[in-house]
Amino acid sequence: MRQYIIKRLFISVFVLFGVSIILYGLIRLMPGDYISNTVAGNPSITEEMVVGLKKLYGLDVGIVEGYFKWLGKALTGDLGESFLYKAPVTQVIASKMWTSFSLSFMAFIIQLLIAIPMGIISATRQYSKTDYAVTIFSLIGISLPSFFFAAILQKTFAVDLQLFPISGMVTAREDYEGFRLMMDMAWHFVLPIVVLAFTSIGSWMRYTRTNMLEVLSSDYIRTARAKGLSEGTVIYKHAFRNTLIPVVTMIGGSIPSLFSGAIITEGIFAIDGLGYTAFHALKAGDIPFIMGFNLFLAFLTLMGTLISDILYAVVDPRVRLS
């Protein structure tokens, strides 16, 4: 297995390299660069200043030359300084990703706790009223745009019932610390976590349901029933464990993506996460940050698939990686 992992990591390097070429090309082809965006609407900028600024930001060179300049630095671990945040890209990503991660991770746990049992229930009672109810519920979740669902939650739970704060990460007025601060943050994160969880419960539920149905129609389940085992034992001991195989691999694969942030939800709830930060950088044409962030995403995706392949071998004794 070690050899397999090393081989996969080795291939990943080449994939990242290819991704970086495509990314850089696309970013440079976007209309408007950082300088023209910042000076637009400022009537006191002179042409000489624009030329000078483009030079200082390294925007005076062509795409190919610019890419190799970027690559040369990136290979030494220097992803450059963000135009917008005026700090090293790695530092900006590192300072924001844990906020995004804690938010997404909590939402992820809640999703699984709700989605997996619901998927199993609706599979075991296929075409029953419960099945339809669960399916409708989860499809509503998938279909609701997060900004709309967030607005409903804010209106109901924050404005009308005043159970939760409307937005923000902490109560600005108070200088809480330690445990109080933790509780205060948790209180502020409830609504955004509900938004993130509810809008993606559906896909997990459907995934579990499909897998469960597949397992339920297999031969060994018929054998188990024929042996005269109770329905509960058949489902929770024989079927459920086998359903978990693909689910666990999917879970493992999703974990890295929890770092990537949620653009819309973070914006609405004023959470200082990676998604909203990246969105601003993209709008401003902050090349070093967009490059760094997208490579980070590419890296997470590669890690996700690798983890899910490894977990597949871990949970399913029939699979051998070589």
Partner: peptide, 14 residues
């Protein structure tokens, strides 16, 4: 750990 490693400044705003 990460969500708890934030420490606030002292005093109560009020």
């Amino acid at each position: 750990i990460l969500s708890s490693c934030n420490s606030g400044s002292s005093g109560s705003g009020g």
